[in-house]
Design a protein around this nucleic acid. Sequence first.
DNA 1: GTAGTGATCTTCT
DNA 2: GAAGATCACTACG
Length: 186
Amino acid sequence: MPEGFECDVPVTELARRLVGARLVVRGSGGTIVETEAYALDDPASHSFRGQTARNAAMFGPAGHAYVYRSYGLHLCLNVVAGPGEAVLIRAIEPEIGIEAMVERRGLTDLRLLCAGPGRLGQALGITLADGGRPFEGAEFGLAVPNAVNGTVICGPRIGITKAVDRPWRFGLARSPWLSKPFAAAG
DNA sequence: GTAGTGATCTTCT
DNA sequence: GAAGATCACTACG
C-alpha cells in the first residue's frame, strides 16, 4: 500500500488527495498536479460495462496500478481506488530524473514533458507490464501527504463524451504543469 | 492564436 | 465498421 494511502475514502476524495502526492517510477517522477476520478457507476469509466481482460487491474487491489492503451498508442497510468474505481494521473511537476524523461519524450520543452496522461506515460517509461503492480518502494513509489492541500480545485473532466458534467478533475490551481488550465475560480 | 487531421489498436455494435 | 480517459503536426489568421 502506498505511503499515506487510505482506501476507505470515495474515489473522488482520493483523486483530490493524490494532488500533491509524490510519484516516482524507476528513478523518474515528481509531484502530481492533476488527476481525474473514475467510478464503477460512471459511464465514462472503463469499468462501467464490467470486468474485461483490459481493465482487470481496475478490479484488483487498491493502491495498485492500472495501465491502459489510449487511442491505440498512448499508455496512461491510474491508481486503483476500489473495485472498478481508479484515479487517472494526468500531469506531474517533473522533479526527479528529468534527463531520462526528456530523453524518452525527445523534447526540450519541459512544460510539455508530463502535461497530459499520454505524455506522462511516455515520460515515465510506463508499459502495459506495469498494470497491476503495487505502488510500493523506491522503484514504483507513491507517497500521499497528510497535509490538506488548500489550493486543490476541481472541474469537468477532459477528453470524455459521457458523464461530462461530473466535476471529477482535480488539480493545483494555476500550476504551470497542468495539461490544461482550470476555469478561473475567482 | 484556433482548427483540422493522421497515427494506431482494443473493444463494442 | 465506429468510437475512444490522446498527442503532434500542419495550415491559416
